[in-house]
Amino acid sequence: MNLLDDRRPGRREAALGLLATLERAAAAQTNAGAARIGITGAPGAGKSTLLDALVRRLRARGQTVGIVAVDPSSRVSGGALLGDRARVRSGARDRGVFFRSMAARERLGGLADATWPSMAVLSAVFDVVFVETVGVGQSEAEVTELVDTLLFVAQPGAGDVLQFMKAGILEHPDVFAVNKADVGAAAERTAGELAAGLSLGAQADADWRPPVLLVSARDGRGIDELADALAAHRAHLVASGELAERRRRARTAYVSDTLERRYGSFGVERIGGREALRARADAGHGAGFETALAIGREIEAALGKPA
């Protein structure tokens, strides 16, 4: 995990090499590996405590869990306070749970550069991998590119249909959980608003109707149902073939994004521009990281740097 997060040039190559090896190993396997689940929601919605309750339930069901939690970095100092570990306590003294905090650094959305590769590595080891991140709107769009299933955590009184739609959060999530159901009527109302909003808009996946669940991290209600809903979405993805599609999309997004960040638009122009980059990254099926390494070398050669 430290290697994946290391920006020094030699280490970056080594990290991509590790990912390429993992990718080949995964391609040789018949099953799809770990379930990759994103968790987003506004600050204060209770994502961490809900995650804590969910992890407990999954552990009771015998599943191992890897977690990547992303927090924003300070624009001013570049530092970051990564506080979620204190709230997800179910992993303490349990080697079946791995928790890694990371800072978003210069990225504005809810993700860090190392998020996707970390998730890919954890997927090789754990049954379920979570990515937890703050945010409403922009970050949902970003996270949904990286995961199989996106869980959105809302809190009671979060707003009406229009506000949910304005924030653009209805399009991406596969499962909605209204937390703090123990407060009663306000939670019911928010769940109703969300369900109403969902019936209005079009979903990316026409064959999956995102469920809206009432849950409470505090008194434990709805946690079992939430674990079931996440498993059901996974089963749906496998059965419909959508899982492979999402994984391919995620890898393409990561590879092209990484190369763009590294070489800038000037570098990307050397190999025919953004679209060409995406197409080539996409074509390298089953060997995305080797493709990335190859494209990188090509750009460096075109830029006149030693490969």
């Binding site: 970095s73 300070s74 001013v76 100092s77 570049g78 530092g79 970051a80 306070l81 990564l82 506080g83 570990r85 204190a86 905090s101 990371m102 800072a103």
Partner: peptide, 16 residues
């Protein structure tokens, strides 16, 4: 300490 560590540019895992 945690707050100042962030303010000097460190990434802080504050465990409580």
């Amino acid at each position: 300490i945690a707050v100042r560590a962030r303010d000097v540019g460190m990434e802080v895992v504050y465990e409580g």
